[in-house]
Design a protein around this nucleic acid. Structure first.
Length: 349
DNA sequence: CCAAAGGA
DNA sequence: TCCTTTGGG
């Protein structure tokens, strides 16, 4: 639920394929991905996948098959997990909690009334990522041999840092927020499935590659101005100004140059003085989060290890009753990949 | 979301 | 063999 920069990026996004990412390291926003899995991996009535004890397993299914596909294409994922949230994010966290509770109520109502289609619709927004699920996701990724990075605060900023220090080639996220954090490149829709149906109409979902430099250049903006646009329309750390969307925000920033100047001149936005809508202190504080984020710089070197097959079996089959045949076919794909890599390596030597 | 089964 | 539908946990 990050900032919607849609109209600003629409002309600069490049459609790519998995093959274009061979050998590349992608710093994936873990929370973003896990929430995506929880929202989408569900049965007909909207119920998530669960084991016999009633534990939700949609995220594990998503991580397993997604990782298989990435590894088979020799793409190197790094999962970046959020740390404790920045205090400025509390209001947004509370807002999301309320939206989720509302969705959950509507989901349960519709499900109990047997209104499957409605139930499925509301189910999407009702999922909660628990501490136990986060912990187990880390354990599972480690079993797959995929490196994990713990962010000091926001995963997006930590992922952006990995790109700027050349430890990753791009950030992998559905959100555009990492651009405000200075991510040079972002890859969106990093998935296999090329079609998605939204109410009987089938839409193709392509992998998108976006560069901060191109976005700024084509819109004639600086990164600070992009942040100002974000503050006007709303980001995780500030709700934005009511009634101001991306187009208005862009026009205002182009016209005045910056939020600081708008505040100095105390311009009117929708018949209201801007000084009554946000303070200079707030602007500075929010800008500072994006420009000088708290980063975990103490990262152990990123290594992709041989998967621990027994650990994967233990988590999926023993703990969560995944079908063992399905898991084994998955594992054999991983083994094949491993031997192919070893072969190319020995050829090289 | 992704894999596997089912139809064409 | 390709494309659509169904089921996974």
């Amino acid at each position: 639920m990050g900032v919607d920069l849609g109209p600003l990026v629409k002309d600069v996004k490049k459609i790519i394929k998995f093959e274009d990412l061979v050998g590349k390291r992608i710093a994936i926003d873990a929370f973003n991905t896990l929430y995506q899995f929880l929202a989408i991996i569900r049965g007909r009535d909207g119920t998530p996948l669960k084991d016999f004890q009633g534990n939700v397993t949609s995220h594990l299914s998503g991580l397993f098959y997604r990782s298989l596909n990435l590894i088979e294409h020799d793409i190197r994922p790094i999962y970046v997990f959020d740390g404790p949230p920045n205090p400025f994010k509390q209001a947004e966290i509370q807002r999301r909690r309320e939206i989720r509770n509302e969705a959950r109520k509507k989901f349960e109502e519709a499900r109990d009334l047997g209104e499957t289609e409605d139930a499925a619709k509301y189910a999407q927004g009702s999922s909660k990522l628990t501490g136990a699920m986060i912990q187990e996701s880390k354990e599972f990724l480690s079993a797959l041999g995929i490196p994990i990075v713990e962010a000091a605060q926001d995963g997006e900023s930590q992922a952006a840092y990995l790109v700027s220090t050349n430890q990753a080639w791009a950030v992998g996220s559905q959100d555009y927020d990492s651009f405000l954090f200075g991510a040079k490149k972002v890859v969106r829709n990093l998935s296999m499935n090329r079609t998605r149906k939204i109410r009987s109409t089938v839409v193709t979902v392509d992998i998108e590659w976006l560069s901060l430099e191109k976005i700024l250049f084509s819109n004639n903006l600086s990164r600070e101005q992009l942040i100002d646009i974000g503050i006007l329309v709303g980001v995780d750390f500030f709700p934005g100004i009511k009634g101001v969307g991306i187009k208005t925000a862009y026009k205002l920033v182009q016209q005045y140059g910056s939020l600081d100047i708008m505040l100095e001149k105390d311009i009117e936005i929708r018949k209201q003085k801007i000084s009554g809508l946000l303070s200079s202190e707030t602007v500075q504080a929010v800008k500072n989060i994006f420009l000088n984020p708290v980063i975990n710089k103490n990262i152990s070197s990123l290594k992709w290890k041989t998967p621990n097959f027994d650990k994967i079996r233990e988590i999926l089959i023993e703990k969560h009753n995944f079908n063992s045949e399905r898991v084994e076919t998955g594992l054999s794909r991983l083994k094949k990949r491993g031997s192919a890599r070893q072969k190319t390596l020995s050829d090289f030597l």
